[in-house]
């Protein structure tokens, strides 16, 4: 098999809440996967366990034939898993260029300045280069967050709602830029998404979460049409809170 990442029997509860109920998933290197599910279904918790931010109560996460449970986010990042966040995690008081420059320098780019210029161009961030990150519009903050995640030249890129908080007409443009950059970098993408049009357009496989478990897994066509998904995921059009 060509799996970059395998989760085996992941469980996690917060008190009475079961955020992950025995999740097992394998991710193929050349398929873009979208994780969908209503608010609180456990999508972010899954990413948090994979990246070492949360330790699962039980289960294994295998990346590069190695169990990475127990490693810190920093160690997992260095192994080749990077992520963006539901709420962009930026260096608020620094400008866009410095944000990227820090990311490229940490990643050990041969020429961090040149790599930063390339990233600014690739993500269409040049016009914002000298603006302070804390003052940017949400769409640009999202792009910058992804651009920083991609700087670490990872094998696997996890995106937590790359288009949330962005106006409907901007979403596709942002995803085009992000997926184009990811393809160019040759990185496998897993993204969490609430907008089913985006899912249908960019995902090759869809995994539907419900109440900490998985209720459907397959091609966008089959998953998005499944009854359970229509009922528990798509029927639920409540705007999600940033978490």
């Amino acid at each position: 098999m060509n799996a970059v990442l395998t989760a085996e029997g992941l469980k996690k509860s917060f008190g009475a809440v079961t955020a992950a109920a025995n999740i097992s998933l394998a991710f193929d290197a050349d398929t873009v996967v979208s994780l969908i599910g209503a608010n609180g279904a456990g999508k972010t918790t899954f990413l948090n366990m994979v990246t070492g931010y949360l330790k699962p109560d039980s289960g294994r996460v295998v990346f590069d034939r190695r169990n990475i449970v127990g490693l810190s986010p920093r160690q997992i990042t260095k192994l080749g898993v990077s992520r963006s966040f539901q709420v962009p995690q930026l260096f608020q008081t620094l400008n866009v260029r410095d944000n990227l420059l820090i990311a490229e320098s940490i990643a050990g780019a041969n020429d961090p300045q040149a790599a930063t210029d390339a990233a600014l161009a690739r993500f269409a961030l040049k016009p914002y280069a000298h603006q302070q990150a804390g003052l940017l519009p949400e769409g640009i903050r999202k792009l910058l967050d992804v651009a920083m995640a991609l700087s670490s030249r990872s094998k696997l890129l996890l995106l937590d709602e790359p288009t949330s908080g962005v106006s409907a007409d901007e979403k596709f443009a942002i995803m085009d830029v992000v997926m184009g950059a990811a393809r160019e970098a040759g990185v496998t993408v897993i993204f969490v998404e609430h907008d089913m049009d985006i899912v249908g357009r960019f995902a090759g496989r869809v995994v539907a979460f419900y109440d900490g478990g998985i209720i459907a897994d397959g091609t966008p066509d089959t998953v998005l049409r499944a009854d359970s998904v229509r009922r528990y995921v798509i029927g639920d059009e409540v705007p999600h809170a940033a978490a």
Binding site: T77, F91, T93, L94, D98, L101, A103, I106
Partner: peptide, 19 residues
């Protein structure tokens, strides 16, 4: 710059691979 980054957002610094 890295010191300023730590002041602003340690989570992001860790997720970029630095301590």
């Amino acid at each position: 710059r890295l010191a300023s980054a730590v002041r602003d957002n340690e989570l992001r610094v860790s997720y970029l691979g630095a301590s």
